[in-house]
Design a protein around this nucleic acid. Structure first.
Lengths: 227, 227
DNA sequence: GATCACAAGTCTGTCATACAAACAAACTCG
DNA sequence: CGAGTTTGTTTGTATGACAGACTTGTGATC
């Protein structure tokens, strides 16, 4: 490196990204994408070999994921990918149903106009993704949209919680996004939220956000129930 | 618990309580009580000696506490007890302001009558504690009260989140509980919540819970601001 | 005397290894 | 066929080692 022209004026934090973080990201991703299905037992030696890391580092990463709730502890028999029960999922959607309106409210309180405009622009991107393209792009655009709202809300703690909660239900959600009738519904819901945000109408935005979560839940459960 | 005799026949799970869990509890307690103040650097070798454990186990416990957010990571310089900023604390209270009403709502939905009665009884204990006794007992009674509501709500995930959030602000709260004017206020707020729960009046209970959180926040910040 | 450079010490990040205890599966013997 | 025993696997814990990052103290230079 040491070439100042490569990265013009970045912070250059020299982030070494400890190995355990890479491990965590790798496992998280695997769970998110379904490569590791709920219930899968995580055997340390296997993972060490597959990831080519030492048991020490692996175990530290596992402890961290365990604390995040996406891995559960069989009594003395190691860890498995958390299998979210129906009741758990319902509870998670209940929580999101109050957290996301809060985030939206705080976005309206704290985000300057240019962020509002950027959000609106991103919502257009998301809409296009919903219409035209594959699941990958939808997920990416949706994540970006969420990120904007959450960072604009200036509540990193709630952001963090939401990320963990949505990750927990990723097995459910992975299936429900692709349902076409949900897509058009989702588009209009997001439009409603954004419109309310642009007007800085807290009550309307919160109501729309809550409804959006509720409908996501319905759709996810309908998919899960095999309808 | 309707039948006190049901207790003696517990599963007796023979919980070995891995060392790292004991370490976590010990550290959590130390943070909760203020023995470890925010900003304190946690040096692994020191802690190993003080707790008489190996670095391996200690580090796993630290990773878990880090994931819970009560320890923060200085870039390459180890961990410190998280110093909750003013803004963080405000955000935490905002989150609690939506989570606790949710819990109360779910308690009303899911708790059978005997749990409602038990909750009411515990609220009396709490009131007595507020009036008569030392801070220790108040905290214990309050924790018990909270536990009953949260378990009655059948939402262990929200329970977990709340525990972590309140732990994060424990430095603030440790001071504000003892303020006498807050005590009488708190008593009447809890009375209101319990009364609404007994009537199974969701709207009233949620409003009371939200107000309770808001007032706790005000009191905590007033204390923190040195008024 | 101030500053810069370098050296020593400290602490974390990572690894390899080892062994006890818990558990599961296979196996043996009645 | 069934009960107890053996064996292998996996986690829990400890120890020792070493590289790299950061801190601090020291000395050389101007």
């Amino acid at each position: 490196m040491a070439n100042p022209l490569a990265e013009p004026l970045n912070p250059l934090v020299h982030e070494p990204a400890p190995l355990r973080n890479k491990i965590m990201n790798s496992l998280r991703r695997a769970i998110e994408t379904g490569a590791l299905e709920p219930g899968t037992r995580l055997v340390e030696k296997d993972l060490c070999e597959r990831l080519n890391v030492s048991r020490t580092s692996l175990r530290e990463a596992l402890r961290q994921l365990q604390a995040e709730g996406i891995l559960t502890d069989l009594n003395n028999r190691g860890l498995t990918v958390a299998a979210v029960t129906r009741s758990d999922a319902e509870n998670i959607y209940r929580i999101r149903g109050v957290l996301e309106p809060l985030i939206v409210e705080q976005f309206i309180e704290n985000a300057p106009d240019d962020e509002v405009q950027a959000l609106k622009a991103q919502s257009e991107v998301l809409k296009k993704a919903y219409r035209g393209s594959n699941a990958e792009e939808i997920v990416a655009a949706k994540r970006d949209f969420y990120d904007r709202i959450c960072t604009g809300a200036r509540n990193p703690i709630a952001f963090d919680l939401l990320k963990k909660l949505t990750l927990m239900t990723s097995p459910l959600r992975r299936r429900s996004v692709v349902r076409p009738e949900r897509q058009s519904q989702s588009i209009s819901e997001i439009d409603t939220i954004v419109a309310a945000i642009v007007k800085r109408d807290k009550a309307a935005a919160k109501a729309a956000a809550e409804k959006h979560v509720a409908n996501s839940a319905i759709s996810a459960f309908r998919t899960a129930d095999g309808v």
